[in-house]
């Protein structure tokens, strides 16, 4: 499909008149927004922090949900560690009192994580999620060490 050709053969006066018309047509759009503020969509971020919501599938940093007793679903199977493309996850295992292999520390390096969702897809026990709270998004920090996180709350459980 060829684009419509551009007419060039107008008289100079007609052309100038049309150009002024085009400028006014553009101005009508911008002034339209000024007099109809309902079409303005700006959200003021740090101020609306309390009411800010993210979609359920939003990929913030990885979180490990704990229930009321402080238990999580992780069995230290290391599938997420293997699925991670850039080594952001390290599973350090330990033995519990019954000599059973359990999760010691779930080390998660947010500084190298690309939030690609592959660890969550790999997890067969639904033990980790991509967080979708404001706290899971605001990751800025003054030192790199603050981005090395341990996701389980108590060691050995």
């Amino acid at each position: 499909m060829n684009l419509a050709p551009i007419p060039h053969n107008d008289h100079l006066f007609v052309r100038r008149l049309k150009q002024v018309g085009e400028l006014l047509r553009g101005m009508r759009v911008t002034w339209g927004y000024l007099v109809r503020p309902s079409r303005v969509v700006t959200r003021e971020y740090p101020e609306n922090r309390e009411t800010l919501t993210f979609p359920e599938r939003f990929r913030g940093q990885v979180v490990m949900p704990h229930d009321a007793e402080g238990e999580h679903n992780c069995t230290a199977c290391t599938l997420c560690e293997k699925a991670c493309p850039n080594g952001s996850i390290s599973i350090l295992t330990t033995k519990n009192i019954a000599d059973k292999r359990v999760l010691g520390r779930f080390v998660y390096r947010l500084s190298s994580c690309t939030l690609c969702n592959l660890c969550i897809e790999a997890c067969p026990f639904d033990a980790i999620h991509m967080g979708h709270q404001v706290d899971n998004v605001e990751a800025a920090s003054y030192e790199r060490a603050a981005l090395d996180l341990i996701l389980n709350k108590r060691e050995g459980r």
Partner: peptide, 12 residues
């Protein structure tokens, strides 16, 4: 896209 796959730029 954010609702669809959770990301705004790097979709995967």
């Amino acid at each position: 896209f954010e609702d669809l796959c959770g990301a705004r730029l790097t979709m995967n």
